[in-house]
């Protein structure tokens, strides 16, 4: 195992940890009443909600832990939490 001197690391490595597997509830972005305000993206503790080319927002389910903050904070109530199917 090659170690980095002094227990150091370069950026990008945390992405190896796919936290999406923790999820019990999935935020579903309806893109129905969405006003593209971006609050969902701002409050996400993971920073995994990004704006698409059509300006709507979408979570990266590889990392979304399903905490539901985006859904709770969405002023348009356009993000609903649905239980993951196993």
């Amino acid at each position: 195992m090659a170690l980095n001197v002094g227990c150091s690391a370069r950026p990008g490595k945390s992405r190896a940890n796919r936290t999406g597997s923790w999820r019990v509830f999935r935020p579903v972005f309806k893109h129905d009443k969405c006003t593209k305000c971006g609050i969902c993206s701002l409050v996400c503790p993971e920073g995994c909600i990004e704006q698409r080319e059509d300006e709507f927002f979408e979570a990266d389910y590889e990392f979304c832990k399903g905490c539901g903050l985006c859904s709770d904070e969405c002023p348009a109530e356009d993000i609903v939490m649905e239980q993951e199917e196993k």
């Binding site: 950026p11 990008g12 945390s14 992405r15 190896a16 940890n17 796919r18 936290t19 923790w22 409050v43 996400c44 503790p45 993971e46 920073g47 995994c48 990266d60 590889e62 990392f63 832990k65 399903g66 905490c67 539901g68 903050l69």
Partner: peptide, 21 residues
């Protein structure tokens, strides 16, 4: 700019993780 990356191990809904971002 996102300077605090995904894949960290904070609890879902973590206030300090939001703070870091």
């Amino acid at each position: 700019l996102e300077l605090f990356d995904c894949g960290h191990r904070a609890c879902g809904g973590c206030g300090p993780a939001m703070a870091a971002r």
